[in-house]
């Protein structure tokens, strides 16, 4: 295989991995911080994709402009969902474990609700539009412009999130909450404010991922579920609560899948992903990138 082919292969893996990372970061915020294993996470990605599609096709809004808009809209939706569902759940659950179990059940319900809502609103048709689909040649390899954009934006947003969490006081608060919720509360960190905010940011990221995906793939109300599953694999790879781990895990999974599909068969992709998932759970249950 030529160097160009390798470059193409790895880059296409990174592009897929960028989306994985973005979705996983959002889920990781929710799970790592609040122990909300949000099974409906991928559904909000779908909502982001449909909002972008509708805005672009009916109003002619540039999908790029929809990146921040979907973030804000989904973040707003996240605040509402948290307010209506998870805040109440936090108050009524006696322990964190019970909260986690209940949250899982509730998010299952949310998944069906959101999916069917989208179905009612947009119908079940497969949809898509053409945006920046022209091929761009880079050093003997060729990619569509929208894929490169997708990778660049996914990496930028992920990096920005990690920087914010590491450098700002807010970020410090969030990390403190991840390490020790009780300790953080004792130090005066306001969980009442941080929790909904981070839940919102999580959904916002999911919305951005959906927005980016709508530029490159066809969309349908059932598109979200596989991403939730992949995000779970990625945060297991990277370690629960570890943001850099989720980014690295997402990119790694994308590349592994691409190489695996090239040398074996796309039909074996799930075997590969789940194999890694089980392997990590067995041998490195804290994640590949967590030093303990």
């Amino acid at each position: 295989m030529s160097l160009g082919s390798w470059l193409e292969l790895i880059a296409s893996g990174l592009i897929t991995g960028g989306v994985y990372a973005l979705v996983a970061l959002g889920l990781n915020l929710q799970y790592g911080l609040m122990r909300i294993l949000n099974i409906a996470h991928g559904e909000f990605l779908m909502v982001g994709a449909f909002i972008t599609y509708t805005a672009h096709v009916t109003l002619g809004i540039n999908p790029l402009l929809m990146v921040p808009i979907s973030f804000l809209l989904l973040m707003g939706l996240g605040l509402v969902v948290h307010r209506l569902v998870f805040r109440r759940l936090t108050r009524t659950s006696p322990t964190l474990d019970i909260f986690e179990a209940r949250g899982l059940m509730v998010s299952f319900g949310l998944m069906f609700l959101v999916q069917n809502f989208a179905q009612t609103l947009w119908g079940g048709d497969l949809r898509g539009y053409d945006f920046m689909a022209d091929p761009v040649a880079i050093g003997g390899a060729q990619f569509s412009a929208n894929k490169i954009l997708l990778l660049v934006l996914a990496l930028t947003i992920s990096a920005a999130l990690i920087v914010v969490l590491n450098k700002t006081l807010y970020g410090k608060g969030v990390r403190a909450l991840m390490q020790s919720p009780t300790g953080a509360q004792l130090m005066g960190i306001d969980t009442e404010r941080l929790h909904p905010l981070m839940f919102g940011v999580g959904l916002g990221l999911s919305g951005v991922a959906g927005c980016l995906l709508s530029m490159t793939y066809t969309i349908s109300p059932s598109m979200g579920e596989p991403y939730t599953v992949t995000a779970l694999i990625v945060i297991t790879l990277g370690g629960f609560g570890s943001m850099a781990g989720a980014l690295a895990g997402g990119l790694a999974l994308g590349v592994i899948e691409a190489i695996g599909m090239h040398f074996t068969n796309p039909s074996l992709k799930s075997l590969l992903s789940y194999g890694i998932f089980i392997g990590v759970l067995l041998w490195r249950p804290n994640g590949l990138f967590v030093r303990k």
Binding site: S5, S12, A258, P266
Partner: peptide, 20 residues
């Protein structure tokens, strides 16, 4: 000749080797 599963998200690794 390659098979792929329903709901596949990326076929480019396969298409690239076919292109070669």
């Amino acid at each position: 000749d390659k098979s792929y599963p329903l709901g596949v998200k990326d076929l480019s690794p396969v298409l690239r080797s076919m292109k070669d």
